[in-house]
Design a protein around this nucleic acid. Structure first.
Lengths: 248, 248
DNA sequence: TCGAATTTGTTCGTATGTATT
DNA sequence: TAATACATACGAACAAATTCG
């Protein structure tokens, strides 16, 4: 947490917010692991070149978000939360991905709708332009904690009624199995990051840093025919994507 | 760009900033591709439920960042800039990755230092705890545009003086070749996202959304011995990572 | 070429929020 | 708690440039 760059007063971001973000990032980087607590308010105030009131506002916001806990007379303690690692590879499945990191994972169906495919989606699914597709929105959780928010597209001609199967099975893999898909593989994954919208913040229960990792992925059946196009949002402060590139 | 979620007045983020972010994201999603311009200020003001001045502040920030261009009497035009796709896989090399997307790439040495390895780095490089390592900071550009900011760690025992070679060759691959490394492969990559620090914003020339994709990667020689541990930051609004999952 | 409509640019003033002392 | 400075946001009016019939 270097002090060479102080607070930008014209950034459109309040000073307390900037300080809260930097404290959160320093915690994330493990800078206070030795003590398990944040430096005293007076010290932070001097470090950032602001008044102690401002530091207190920052800490209050972090305490509100469950990142810190203030104890009068002792200091400001860090509530620990490990970042989960989500493997992305040829056989990516939400239900298996987190493995031992979570006791129980769940996929909840948020919405289902029939649409005509946009050019992007029809290309990804190898459908004719404007072909009917099923859009499915899911919230994926691990031990009750929201992990990701996904939008899936399937060909309507081939997967009519998949929403019902998903709602029953709580598993994409099993819902696809109802249509004779015994196995599927991931063809491609593209990752970007951005600020979350207000509704995404709400669904993913994002805290002080509403940043999401956005993945665009295409899955194919064993005959290499594309069957699923998905856009998935991960809470960036809760999840790291891991790409394993073994073999050779 | 739905209007159901308006502006959060208690978020610590100024209204103009929130609007700027949302306009930027709508542009990114291609919502204004039909006209190539943003709706008129009065319309945006009504849409977001704010005064026209506030919208103007948002647009001013985006214009400053080169996202928009205002023309009196005509409207506010979108400056197009395609997002580059950076492939990440078993044979990831910056000099080759962007391929036809850029005419010329360059790696500039920013700093070199000798350090003792942290537990994380010594584990990644299969070194003894506290072994001396070389830390190298580079700025990687494509056609003059900053793409990524990287910190690389190498064993000092094996790669003493690599900084000089890197400065001379402007290529990690060639610098490693000076030490007899004919080929190397990537073992793993971990991707997260976060807000950029002020110095990172400066190096990467980030605009209104100072979000970076952070990758942690380990490269190994042909004998599968780890030789390089790197942390790389990509400008999230300029780069998408493509995770290659070969085989099957 | 004219003129109305549209859209951005500018300048007042006022009120509120944020941060410091 | 109170005084102060500055950034933010709103409202109204008008100016200047562009478009289009």
């Amino acid at each position: 947490m270097n002090g060479e760059f102080l607070i930008d007063r014209k950034s459109g971001i309040a000073a307390w917010k900037q300080i809260a973000d930097r404290i959160a990032r320093a915690i994330d980087a493990g800078e206070f692991d030795a003590t398990g607590m944040v430096p005293p308010e007076t010290e932070l105030a001097e470090h950032f070149g602001v008044n102690r009131h401002t530091v207190r506002s920052a800490i209050a916001a972090l305490a509100e978000g469950g990142v810190l806990r203030r104890v009068q007379g002792r200091g400001t303690l860090i509530e620990k939360r490990a970042r989960l690692v989500y493997p992305v590879g040829r056989r990516t499945r939400f239900s298996e991905g987190l493995g031992r990191q979570a006791a129980e994972t769940d996929i909840k169906l948020l919405a289902e709708a029939e649409e005509t495919a946009s050019p992007l989606i029809s290309a990804a699914l190898a459908l004719e332009a404007g072909a009917p597709v099923i859009r499915i929105e899911t919230l994926n959780t691990a031990d009750g904690v929201p992990i990701s928010l996904a939008t899936h597209y399937f060909s309507h001609a081939r997967f009519a009624g998949i929403g019902g199967h998903l709602a029953a099975w709580h598993s994409i893999t099993r819902a696809l199995a109802e249509f004779g898909i015994d196995d599927y593989v991931r063809l491609s994954t593209e990752v970007t990051a951005r600020m979350a919208s207000a509704s995404e913040v709400a669904h993913l229960a994002l805290g002080t840093t509403p940043i999401v990792l956005e993945t665009l992925a295409v899955n194919a059946d064993s005959a290499a025919r594309p069957i699923q196009y998905s856009r998935t949002l991960f809470a960036a402060d809760r999840i790291a994507l891991r790409l394993d590139t073994p073999g050779g």
